[in-house]
Structure formats: C-alpha cells, structure tokens
Amino acid sequence: MANIEFVYFDLGNVLVRFDPALACRNLATLFAVSEQRAEQALYGSGLQTAYEHGELCDQEFAQQLCSDLCSDFISAQQTAPGRSTIAQQDVLDAISEMFTPIESMAGVVEDVRERLGRVGLLSNTCFAHWDWIRRQNWAVSKLDFEVTLLSCEVASMKPDAEIYRLAQQACGLAGEQILFLDDKAENVAAARNQGWHAECCFGGQQAMDALAKYL
C-alpha cells in the first residue's frame, strides 16, 4: 500500500465542470461577433494559454482580447447602437461564466483532509477563472486548501516538470507520499514521472474510486 500523506486535486473536471463553448458564446454576445470569431480570439490565438501561463495580467489579457474583437464590435454598433465601451470585468466574467460545480467533491476533499490533515489544489488556470469560481456560492468554491498552486501564479503549466517540482516543494513531501487526481492523461503521466502517485479521473464517483485505491 502507498504511504500517501498529501493529495493534490486538479480544478477543471475534477472539482468543477467547464464548457469552453459557453465562454465563446458569452464573448460573442458581449462583443456582438460570431461564436467562431470569439473562439479564434480567445483560444485559437493562444491568448488564453498565455494568460493561464502567467504571461499576461488581467488588464493585459482584457486589453488584447478587446483589441482583437473591438473592430468587429464597433462595426456591429453602427448597425445596432448600444453600449460603446466594454468594462474589463465584463470581459473577465464572460470568459469565466462557463463553470458548474461538482458538488459531491466538496465532501470528498473534506474527507481526505480529515484523514491526512492537508490537501492541495494544482491547476492550469488563469486569475479570472479562479476569481470567478471563488465568488460563487458553491460548496466547492468555499474549500480552503493548505496548498494552492495555480499555473498563472508560477508561470508553469502541467505537464511541464517545473510545476510539479514547485508543488512538491510547497507541500514539503517526497514524491511517493503525494497522490494527484487530474482529468488529463498527459498530466497524470508527468506526475508519475516525478515519482508521484497519480490517477486520471473526473470528479464524482471516478475520483472516489481513485482515492479508494490509496486511502
């Protein structure tokens, strides 16, 4: 049996579900553009990845997105007059209102904390997503982790080895004492390459089954 003393949980698809198409729909509505145009500006351009990697702050991200989509927005305003300016927070909320909670995971995380004393969050995410989730009145959004490691804060993203090194340093344990739950196989493989125990699963019953193998 593994001697697990700490569990890291991924955020997306483990603690909360997300739908990128909804983020694109929100942007399309906000800027009066097509969903395809919004998807290209947000994801196809690599802008969202740069934001999650910590290469851009909130203001820089919103400004670049507005700069890309603003010409289309102004053109649409000429035929459909309305608000001519878009607030930064509106942009950040538009890309973030795509999450729904996996409420059962709040109890799962707390159960692991009761057993081990500490739990952590290890996620590829951006400041806007994390802020929006923390503002929701969900049980999972109220969880307090002893260690929270976000890609946007450390300028490294899974499956890069550096983010796992930082996560291991943050919890202060050997790799064989750490269990990591993530929904992507490449992230799980990278964790195992660092000597961690790791399981690929989604939140809910799959996560419970994965934890039952070790705890």
Rank of each mutant, 00 (worst) to 15 (best):
residue 84 S to K: 12
residue 125 T to C: 04
residue 41 A to Y: 05
residue 191 A to F: 08
residue 96 S to R: 01
residue 128 A to T: 00
residue 102 I to V: 01
residue 57 C to S: 15
residue 166 L to P: 11
residue 25 R to V: 06
residue 127 F to H: 12
residue 140 V to C: 01
residue 119 V to Y: 00
residue 103 E to T: 11
residue 129 H to T: 03
residue 201 C to A: 05
residue 120 G to Q: 05
residue 161 A to E: 15
residue 93 D to P: 07
residue 215 L to Y: 02
residue 34 S to Y: 08
residue 197 H to C: 09
residue 105 M to A: 03
residue 27 L to I: 09
residue 206 Q to I: 01
residue 128 A to P: 00
residue 165 R to Q: 14
residue 109 V to F: 00
residue 30 L to C: 08
residue 43 Y to I: 13
residue 28 A to G: 15
residue 165 R to V: 15
residue 3 N to Y: 05
residue 196 W to G: 04
residue 205 Q to Y: 11
residue 146 E to K: 09
residue 215 L to V: 02
residue 199 E to P: 05
residue 82 G to A: 12
residue 170 A to I: 05
residue 36 Q to V: 13
residue 71 S to A: 15
residue 17 R to Y: 02
residue 78 Q to I: 14
residue 14 V to D: 01
residue 194 Q to I: 10
residue 172 G to F: 04
residue 145 F to P: 04
residue 12 G to K: 03
residue 5 E to V: 04
residue 37 R to G: 11
residue 196 W to V: 04
residue 90 D to Y: 03
residue 60 E to S: 13
residue 92 L to T: 00
residue 115 R to Y: 07
residue 28 A to P: 04
residue 156 S to E: 15
residue 177 Q to D: 12
residue 129 H to W: 03
residue 190 A to T: 06
residue 102 I to H: 00
residue 127 F to Q: 12
residue 114 E to G: 09
residue 185 A to Y: 10
residue 40 Q to F: 08
residue 100 T to W: 04
residue 109 V to T: 02
residue 215 L to E: 03
residue 29 T to I: 05
residue 195 G to V: 07
residue 169 Q to F: 13
residue 213 K to G: 02
residue 115 R to E: 12
residue 125 T to R: 01
residue 111 D to S: 12
residue 212 A to C: 08
residue 192 R to W: 12
residue 86 I to A: 02
residue 13 N to V: 04
residue 190 A to Y: 08
residue 104 S to T: 13
residue 7 V to K: 00
residue 142 K to I: 06
residue 13 N to P: 03
residue 162 E to W: 11
residue 159 P to A: 13
residue 88 Q to R: 09
residue 114 E to P: 02
residue 66 C to Y: 13
residue 27 L to D: 07
residue 146 E to D: 15
residue 21 A to R: 09
residue 99 F to G: 05
residue 209 D to W: 03
residue 21 A to N: 10
residue 110 E to K: 06
residue 47 L to I: 06
residue 120 G to V: 03
residue 208 M to A: 14
residue 72 D to L: 14
residue 22 L to Q: 15
residue 202 F to C: 15
residue 111 D to Q: 11
residue 153 E to W: 12
residue 28 A to C: 06
residue 187 N to Y: 11
residue 166 L to I: 15
residue 18 F to I: 06
residue 47 L to R: 07
residue 120 G to K: 04
residue 203 G to W: 01
residue 146 E to L: 07
residue 68 D to G: 12
